[in-house]
Design a protein around this nucleic acid. Sequence first.
DNA 1: GTACATGTGGGCC
DNA 2: GTCGGACCAATTCGG
DNA 3: CCGAATTGGTCCGACGGCCCACATGTAC
Length: 499
Amino acid sequence: MRLADVVAVSDAVRATSSRREKVAALADLLRDAEPRELPVAASLLAGHPRQGKVSVGWRTLRTVEVEPAPHPRLGLVEVDRVLGEIASASGPGSTGRRAELLAGLFGAATDAEQAFLRGLVLGELRQGALEGMVAQALARAWELREADVRRALMLAGDLGVVAQAAATGGEAAVRAFELELFRPVQPMLAKTSDDVVTALEEVGGAAVEAKLDGVRLQVHRDGHRVGVWSRTLKQLTTGAGRIVDLVRELPATSLVLDGEVLALDPDGRPRPLQDTMRALGDEDTALAVFFFDLLHRDGRSLLDVPLVRRRAELCDVVPDPHRVTHTPVRSGDDAEAAYHAALDAGHEGVVVKALDSPYEAGRRGRAWRKVKPAHSLDLVVLAVEWGSGRRTGWLSNLHLGAPDPDGGFVMLGKTFKGLTDERLAWQTQRFLGLETHREPGVVHVRPEQVVEVAIDGLVRSPRYPAGLALRFARVLRYRDDKSPDEADTIETVRGLATP
DNA sequence: GTACATGTGGGCC
DNA sequence: GTCGGACCAATTCGG
DNA sequence: CCGAATTGGTCCGACGGCCCACATGTAC
């Protein structure tokens, strides 16, 4: 199979907004792939090299602009091989080596193929189909149930593996996937709710757990052997030593645990996420681990067992100081109390979990609901960036600042979130009207427009002048009723700061 | 030749 | 991580 | 009763912050 075949399908997929048509086009190509090509085809169509990131970004790509080839001649397997070589290049001279390999690849690619490869390595294919759509296409190509394919993908964590199983073993092989030690599963995720009372209504019989602001972990153990993975199933090496030791001591023969790691103050209160991330890179700094779920114990998968029982078994195996607080609640008042207790303890918020729910690997379903407090600030727009992709032609990303009582404004961060298409159109006109000057990609404006922004909090910043930055800022509304001097000042913002 | 600064990419949230 | 837009299947609504 | 409208589940894309690692460039 040639790269050109994949590129043609990618273009066809981009050309339609219908998911069924996308899936049909993808399925046709996957059916035609040779067995050894199949994992490559599946991966490329899902928008990423089979090797994952290959350490090539926009800057590196700009150094290898070469004449496109007149006719397609690249084979899929060859493309995969070269991408693998690029990904594995390291050490002195590797930058040059990567550029060399890229130049060779791009020189053999047609114009359309070059565009595809650029999108691929940058992760910006923008064909309206990623892994989820390819999974549906696998189901379609081999006449499998979508739910079976999705389940296999969650358990295998690798599209290529599932594709091969589908092609060679059909339904039986795809349904045969089970939780396997040292093959991490996609972690279960939580949907957002506005408050704990509605969360409780949505979930039914529930328990409230503290939401720790750290790094998600999945730990597998078989006898003495222990493996640790992150939320995106990257293996954790540095910083994992203490976790490994802890899990090795637990009373079990084999385990799969789901939890969170974070740095603590001497008095046991959680440190900001930034400290956890720093500590993860340093084997000597103490980190605390808290588990909240048990997916496998002593040879038995617990994925389909209700949360109440998984929790009970977790308590058998993991001692209290390493468990996330878990409070079964009967009323909204109970839930509120647990929520405030979690916040008082310094945690990010709470997760409300249905007690009868199985572990739905990879799903962001109704069974888990997260609730975090949001703060809001009235800030002033200092500049706006031109959007890209579907936001091309619109001013999108807002630079936000707070007035400084000593004069001027102090920039605190940017946001592009919370904007409807209608608002994007409006703000484009609005800010062009306030334009003072431009630099590439950025329109600077007179600081006259106030915008109310929601944030999850503030973080220590090494780059912004106040030493503070907004965390997860998103637009709530424009405040046409406020002038810039009525916006929240930098002093007010500093008053909120905890980091 | 070694120490530090910078640019770039990847990975967390 | 958050958010908005889009598609689609399932469910509810309205005449 | 049947088509229309709504809802919930998912997926995708557009980009935020910080952290680190690593290769390379610069200063002494």
